[in-house]
Write a protein that binds this DNA or RNA. Structure first.
Lengths: 211, 211
DNA sequence: GTCAATTTTTACCATTTGGTAAAGACACGA
DNA sequence: TCGTGTCTTTACCAAATGGTAAAAATTGAC
């Protein structure tokens, strides 16, 4: 019973649990929760299906484990918003990090998007307990920056939404982006440049008094 | 064989095919393609499963039919971009229409998003043949507007992506938005206001010479 | 009302899928 | 090398699911 108490995991356990989660990320992100099968995950992981069920209690536990681990990584860039930094550069750095994550972790982005689109049935508690406090805190911070005249005032919540939406779009909708940007190969750099421009023009004070 | 040739559909056929597609939109948009079952669609439509298969050849045909019908509606606002209109108001009107669609047709938005996230397996031909020409045409139009100094220059393709991303976000990620905007009830109006500001500040020429 | 065409139901079926039982293989400290 | 606990495989199963055959019911033109 490898999952029972707080036993130190053996090397084999560590290795195989990692393999399973890697495979599951690949399969879940491509086919969605219902579309993914344990057989696919097993094949991708190079293990047998019963062997997978030796390490995890079932399909749902694998999915939830993935989502919970992902959440931390996902929120790191937002956590990194520094109250003591320069407001506009802080926001732009956040945008850049999110673009980088869409580029480097598209499977994670799609896994998350799929879960949310279907009503967040398995991750809603985590949204309320983990995401919401952080979101509120950072929105308040941005609001103070605006009140102080360091950023032009807009609704911080919708600002954050638009940063999420625009950056994750490149991962989540890559099938569409790929069709429409068929030839371009500098698309990543173009996207980052465009988004930096977008949020700079939105937020940069007309009379920069930030120092 | 109601689907064979170009026969005029009976009133019963018209009514039941509509019922089935309505039900399927509901179910597919909530659970994704694989997550939806014919039994669910049948229950939602108030028909028996075999009866549904009398009107459609199978699950996939229902899905493809939905996607193809949706595509037209979905692209209408982009089609409406008028080369003879005022550039900035045209763009802002496009944004407003897309916000309205996210508000009024969230199921359609999620159905589409789900298909794209999973690599557009069933709608890719339609993307290439239907969406791409329109996208290229409208991007060229926006590019000319920029060249003429009516809009500040940015990459039109990424501009369009960001309009799609920000507007559809409110439908596709409504589960998340709902958690984070728990109390707010004027969220729709706020979102529209924010997005109009966002794209105005991005595109409005410093020295408005558009007339 | 009659009758042919359309529509709906009943009774199935084969496959897929998440999951289990239990035997067997293996690792590794004593 | 022995033996115990860890890991893996083989052989299954029950439920769900997409789909079919054919009988029964209904509709509508005449």
């Amino acid at each position: 019973m490898p999952d029972g108490a707080a036993k130190k995991p053996s090397r084999i356990q560590t290795r195989n649990r990692r393999r399973i989660l890697d495979a599951a990320l690949e399969v879940f992100s491509r086919h969605g929760y219902r579309g993914a099968t344990l057989d696919q995950i097993a094949a991708e992981a190079g293990l047998s299906k019963p062997n997978i069920l030796y390490y995890f209690d079932g399909k749902e536990e694998i999915h939830v484990t993935l989502l919970n681990r992902l959440m931390d990584t996902w929120l790191d860039p937002l956590r990194a918003l520094d109250p003591d930094g320069d407001p506009l550069p802080e926001i732009l750095e956040y945008v850049r990090r999110k673009v980088g994550m869409a580029r480097d972790l598209p499977r994670e982005s799609r896994l998350f998007a799929g879960e949310i689109i279907q009503g967040a049935p398995r991750i809603r508690p985590h949204l309320e307990a983990g995401l919401r406090p952080l979101f509120d805190e950072k929105c308040a911070l941005i609001g103070r920056w605006m009140d102080a005249g360091h950023l032009r005032p807009v609704d911080p919540r919708h600002l954050v939404f638009s940063i999420w939406a625009t950056t994750q779009h490149y991962a989540d909708f890559s099938a569409q982006v790929g069709v429409l940007l068929a030839d371009t190969d500098a698309a990543d750099a173009d996207a980052e440049q465009y988004l930096v421009t977008l949020f700079t023009r939105l937020l940069e004070p007309a009379n920069p008094q930030s120092r």
